[in-house]
Simulated assay, not measured.
Amino acid sequence: MHCHSLLLDIGNSSIKCRELTRTAREDSGMDIVRWRPLMTFADVDALLAYLGEKKARFNSVLIGSVRSDSDDTAILKRLTPYATTIELAQTQSAALGLTNSYANPQKMGVDRWLAMLGAQLLCGQNFLVIDAGTAVTADFVVNGLHQGGWIAPGFSLAQEAVTGHTARVTQAPSHQHTIAFGQNTEDCLHFGCLAQLHGIVHQAKLLAAQFGEFDVILSGGDVDRLRSLNQAARNEFIFVDNIVLFGILRMALADMSLDNAQKVARSLLI
C-alpha cells in the first residue's frame, strides 16, 4: 500500500504545506513515512497554481484552517479535483489521547488544538507548546489533559498596537533577536515587544513548573525571535518551524499507536 497525502496549514497570512508519503512494509513492520520540505504559499491561488502545474493527485488532503467557514467551504471545493478524500480538522473535546479543557471546544482555534496534537508527538507526557505567529498562544498539557492556555498579540501586532495609537512612535525593521535597551524610539519599540514575547515564555514556564518536569516546544513565524532563549536555558527548548503541521501529521497517522506515531514524527524532525 502506498498513500500520498497533502497536509495544509491555512493561516491568516499564508498557507504552509508538506507532501506526505506512507508505504506499507512487506515484512509487516512499521510503515515507511516520509515528507517533503515545507512549502509556503501566499494564498490559495498560488497553491492551486502549483498543484495544477505538477498535475498533482493525492489519496487525501488534510487541512487545518483558521479561516472563516465560508472561506473553508470555498477552499474545499477548489481542492476537490486534487484528492480522493479531504478532511478539515476540527477542535474536539477529546481525541488521539488528548483531552480539551474547554467546556465548548469549538471556541478554541483549531491551530491550538493541532499544535497540542503535534507537540504530543515530540514530547513526553507533560509539555508546554508556544506558537508565536500573528497571535502568540501558549497551551499546557499534563498526561494528555489540557490544563489551559493563553492568547496574546504576536510580535508584529504588538508593534502595530503602539504605532497605530501614538503619533510619535514609529517602527523600523530589525534583525536583533537578543534583548537590549534601545537608544532610539524604533529600537525601544522593537526590544520592548521582543521582551514581551520572551516574557510570555518565561511566565508560562513558571506557571507550568508546579506540575513538575515538562518539555517546551517553541514554534511559529516568530520562532527565530525566541532562539536566543536557549543561550541562557541550556538548550531546554524544542524548536519546530511549524508545529501545526505535526498536528495534522497526527491526524494522518491516526491508525497508529501514539508510540509508533512518535517514532515517525521524531524521525521526520531530523
Rank of each mutant, 00 (worst) to 15 (best):
G118K: 02
I10H: 00
L62M: 11
G149E: 14
Q171L: 04
T85Q: 10
S70E: 11
L128S: 10
M256Q: 14
S60D: 14
D31C: 03
T166I: 05
Q171W: 14
G52N: 15
L76G: 03
I151L: 08
S65F: 01
H146K: 07
L20W: 00
L121M: 07
F181R: 09
L218I: 00
D187N: 11
W150E: 11
Q106S: 14
Q262W: 05
E186R: 10
A138V: 14
S156R: 11
M116A: 12
I243P: 00
G192I: 12
H190I: 06
L48C: 05
R112V: 03
R78T: 13
A161Q: 14
T185N: 07
R67C: 00
N143W: 07
N184V: 01
Q106K: 15
H198A: 03
A46I: 01
E19W: 07
Q125M: 13
E19D: 06
T21I: 02
Q231I: 13
D215V: 01
Q183N: 10
C123K: 09
L245Y: 02
F214I: 04
N260I: 00
T84G: 10
V162N: 11
K107Q: 15
D72E: 12
S267G: 04
Q171K: 10
L96D: 05
H146R: 03
A261W: 05
Q125N: 14
C3I: 04
A138P: 00
G97P: 01
I248N: 02
G148Y: 13
N104S: 12
